[in-house]
Write a protein that binds this DNA or RNA. Sequence first.
DNA 1: AAATAAAGCTAACAGCTGTTAGTGACGTTG
DNA 2: CAACGTCACTAACAGCTGTTAGCTTTATTT
Lengths: 198, 198
Amino acid sequence: MARIRSKKNSSRKELITLAAARLFREKGFSATGMRDLAGDVGVEAASLYNHISSKAELLQEICFRIANTFTTQLNELEANDTMSSIEKIEQVIRFHIRMWVDRIDEVLVANNESKYLDEPYLTTFYNERRIYVRRLEMIIEDGIKKKQIRKIQPYAVVLLLLSAVRGIEFWHRTKKNISAAELEDSMVVNIINGLAAQ
Amino acid sequence: MARIRSKKNSSRKELITLAAARLFREKGFSATGMRDLAGDVGVEAASLYNHISSKAELLQEICFRIANTFTTQLNELEANDTMSSIEKIEQVIRFHIRMWVDRIDEVLVANNESKYLDEPYLTTFYNERRIYVRRLEMIIEDGIKKKQIRKIQPYAVVLLLLSAVRGIEFWHRTKKNISAAELEDSMVVNIINGLAAQ
DNA sequence: AAATAAAGCTAACAGCTGTTAGTGACGTTG
DNA sequence: CAACGTCACTAACAGCTGTTAGCTTTATTT
């Protein structure tokens, strides 16, 4: 029987998924072959199928794992009613930056390669993302209503947040001499200062 | 003989290149097949080769045409010594926005698909882009020296410019009810105001 | 009208794509 | 030791890839 999912098995699949994320990010989903991936893992292409069921599944795994990570964090944040809107936004920004720094491969694949998801996953993924952005807007709207945040277009703010965080990628590539923590703090300070009322 | 390059010929290749830009943008370079492209143009795949010499050449054409367009504009701007630094930056921003609005397919391909260029084109392209960014920084440094621009990190400003303009894409997709001219003006006002000294 | 160039077509290629089938080696458990 | 699950291997597949060769049709020029 052996119903216990062996540690070897799950860590092997995990290793393959992370290697796939790195390759999909670097070369793009379509340009990455199963033989490339196998070579990276140190195995023949056919052997991969002892652990995964298809190339498409790898992309799904990467994209939805990231989507769920962001959604879960937002769930916890929304449930917390002791934080002000500004504090919530600060937590969101910190979380985005941390994800960008720690899990850059998966995040970039979810951003840039998700268009290669098959249906119905493609539609599901885009819906989840749309809802996520909408929920961020609602936090900001709430903050404006409570006069904790300057009166501005919530959608524009979300846009600013997302593209500011996106800028980290460049920064991260060129200025290696700044630590992740420093980066996080200085970004948060800059953005939050621009938002706070008065 | 007939040494005159017929209008038909050049416009046919142009048509193919623009269709390629649209497909490369939509589906990515690797995921776009010559049969897809041919279908879009209304022709069999083999017939494309009466006008172009390879798929790779199409990507080169798109990327370097865009690179040259930006570089040429910057050349003219640098040669002009009656403009202040702020005015020059304003012209740069306006140009970027106009390119983003008018030639979105080609610009996005040059941004996102250039990694699929073969050597030596890949290296050449990245070098041109690096030099372009460096030249923008120099305009800003010059403006700081002449006290026309606030004292800030030039590299950060260039980053801001480029990613702010990038945000237009989202905006453009969602808020169709604002004209390109309005968009350009409001973006320019916002960015320039943040930069000017005093 | 004859000649020539431009641009389409079909058929086919070699190589690569993701994936399956079948086999055997290894290590753990009964 | 026998049985079993895990996981690697080789060989092979059908379908797709960019591209070429050769031929024919359409348009332009002399």
